[in-house]
């Protein structure tokens, strides 16, 4: 039984749209460009921001202090920390860094009331950019994107479901749950149609 060998393969939530085969170099020809940033690492973290033991331990594990202002995010050397709720954060990093980050957090938080969960299978991110990016998102969400300043992340509506949104590299990142990916992508495509929509080769963005 010990001679079993396998080659596990991962699929992102938008795998079935074959976005990679459709992607183009981003130029000025389209009003909106978007693509999935597939298979990132997502860690859910809960804890009491008022508890100095918790915030200190988290800072030690992550190398950065948790953002604690409402709707704020910070960029770190390894990824991003989003405050989703006064006692809830989402850490997003490269998939390979996830386990180490999770283990560091769990080790630092032993004995401190908190929750650390690998949720990487449960989320994905879509990056939307282009001159009509905010127009398109205003078809999708009730949130006023003019109020979405840099450094801010909001949980809001997208069609009939919800997402997290923030500005990123002259565009927007939309973070959402796996099971809604098909709906959200179709809704985005449909909304972007009048503006001319391209699947972006996002390169390093």
């Amino acid at each position: 039984m010990s001679n079993l060998t396998f080659n596990p393969v991962m699929q992102s939530p938008l795998h079935h749209f074959n976005l990679k085969t459709k992607q183009q170099h981003v130029d000025g020809s389209k009003g909106v460009w978007a693509n999935e940033m597939p298979l990132l690492g997502y860690i859910s973290l809960r804890g009491n921001a008022q508890n100095a033991l918790f915030t200190k331990a988290a800072k030690k594990a992550l190398g950065f202090a948790l953002p604690i202002l409402p709707c704020s995010l910070i960029s770190t050397s390894w990824g991003c920390i989003y405050l989703l709720s006064p006692d809830e954060w989402l850490l997003v990093c490269d998939r390979e860094l996830r386990t180490e980050l999770q283990q560091k957090l769990e080790a630092a938080l032993v004995g401190i009331h908190s929750q650390v969960i690998d949720n990487s299978g449960g989320f994905t991110t879509v990056f939307v950019q282009g001159k009509n990016a905010s127009d398109v998102l205003h078809h999708c969400t009730v949130y006023d994107l003019n109020a979405l300043t840099i450094g801010k992340v909001v949980g809001t509506t997208f069609g009939k479901t919800s997402v997290f949104l923030h500005q990123h590299n002259n565009g927007y990142k939309v973070i959402f749950r796996r099971s809604f990916a098909d709906y959200i992508w179709r809704y985005l495509e449909r909304s972007a149609l009048p503006y001319d929509f391209g699947i972006a080769n996002l390169g390093s963005s």
């Binding site: 859910s44 809960r46 804890g47 006692d87 809830e88 009331h113 908190s114 929750q115 969960i117 690998d118 949720n119 990487s120 299978g121 449960g122 989320f123 749950r177 796996r178 099971s179």
Partner: peptide, 13 residues
Amino acid sequence: LEVYMTSVTDHWT
């Protein structure tokens, strides 16, 4: 009560 709960529905197949 010291509990936190988080949905992991989408994480697991």
